Computed example of a mutant assay.
Amino acid sequence: MRALAQRGHIVAMTGDGVNDAAALRAAHIGVAMGITGTDVAKEAADMVLTDDDFSTIVRAIREGRSIYDNIVTFVRFQLATNIGAILTLLATVVAGLPAPMSAIQLLWVNIIMDGPPAMALGVDPPRENVMRRPPRPPAERILNARRLTAIVRVGAVMATGTVAVFTVARHLTDATTAATMAFTTFVLFQLCNALAARSEDEPVFGRHQLHNPTLWICLAVVFILQGVAVQVPVAQGVFDTAPLSAAQWAICLATASSVLLAEHAWRIGRARPRRSARRSDTS
């Protein structure tokens, strides 16, 4: 056990007898048997396995890895959205444009549009390959360099698309409609970002997107609420919006979907050299 720990492994020790007590206490996680274990072993352990079934440990590890994955997904989604909003406002200021979203719209984005998808991502079911992955390094940070790069990349795509829609719409429509299109585009970017954030390495478009019905329900609710904020006259007075035509909605949705396409292409391109390297090692 000490040799494994010195090599950087996290060591769990199972035991039931008095002679196991020293190792149970010294291990990172000591697991005593609840049925056949002695009182000495139970007192020395960090946890007690009530059914004495090793498969329970496997299920617990699976659940722990899933919780960690969901924390990472939640953080990536929230930070990418916030960075996208910050970059959008900075870009319009640098370009000498008016603010694309009002204060009430930003509040709507951060509280109502952000909350339901983020909470749904927090209860994502375990990935199919969760137990085939090697253990993560103990010193690995939630926001490592690769994840920070991905967060900034997604935020930049969201900001670029929102500013582009706002800039073009200002030349084709009135100011209120242009701001409404920018506002709607950013909200739809959030919905697409929730789908892109569900995994780090898997392609965006895959069967795993169907494994969380709660997320799809939340996305549908958010989309309906945005439709109310834009299309209902009473809500228009509250959110400073103007009604959008079907073509304008389509432009906003097509622009927002660019984050899905960009992330999918990025992951496919990054996975290709890895597959080639694995084939070379095999041959």
Rank of each mutant, 00 (worst) to 15 (best):
R2L: 15
R7N: 12
H9T: 03
A12P: 01
T14R: 11
G15Q: 06
G17H: 10
N19C: 15
A22P: 15
L24I: 07
A26M: 09
I29C: 04
G30Y: 00
V31S: 11
A32L: 10
G34P: 05
I35D: 00
T36Y: 08
T36Q: 14
G37N: 01
A41D: 14
E43N: 02
E43R: 06
A45H: 03
D51I: 02
D51Y: 00
D52K: 01
F54S: 04
I57F: 02
V58T: 07
R65S: 07
Y68G: 07
F74P: 05
F74W: 10
V75K: 08
L79R: 06
T81S: 11
G84I: 03
A85P: 09
A85Y: 02
I86T: 14
T88L: 07
L89H: 05
L90I: 11
L90K: 02
V94W: 04
G96H: 00
A99K: 14
A99T: 15
A99G: 11
M101F: 10
I104E: 05
I111W: 06
I112F: 06
G115L: 09
P116R: 00
G122P: 14
P126I: 05
N129H: 15
N129M: 09
P137Y: 13
P138F: 07
L143P: 04
N144C: 07
R146Q: 15
R147L: 10
L148P: 09
A150H: 11
V152K: 07
R153A: 15
A156W: 01
V157E: 05
V157W: 06
M158P: 02
M158D: 07
A159T: 03
A159C: 08
V163Q: 03
V163N: 05
V163A: 03
A164Y: 05
T167Y: 12
A169Q: 09
R170D: 01
T176L: 13
A178S: 12
A178C: 09
A182S: 12
F183N: 06
F183H: 03
L188K: 08
L188V: 13
Q190H: 00
C192R: 05
A196E: 00
S199P: 00
S199R: 14
E200R: 12
D201S: 14
D201P: 02
E202K: 13
P203V: 10
V204Y: 02
V204T: 02
G206H: 10
R207P: 01
Q209S: 03
L210M: 15
N212C: 11
P213T: 06
W216S: 13
W216R: 11
W216Q: 12
I217N: 06
V221H: 00
V221I: 14
V221S: 01
V222I: 11
I224L: 11
Q226P: 08
G227N: 12
V228M: 02
V230Q: 01
Q231L: 14
V234Y: 13
G237E: 01
G237H: 02
A242I: 03
P243W: 07
P243I: 09
S245W: 05
S245K: 12
A250F: 14
T255V: 14
T255S: 14
S257D: 09
L260M: 09
A262F: 08
A262D: 00
H264I: 06
R267Y: 08
I268A: 13
R270A: 15
A271D: 11
S276H: 15
R278P: 00
R278W: 06
R279Q: 13
R279D: 10
S283M: 14
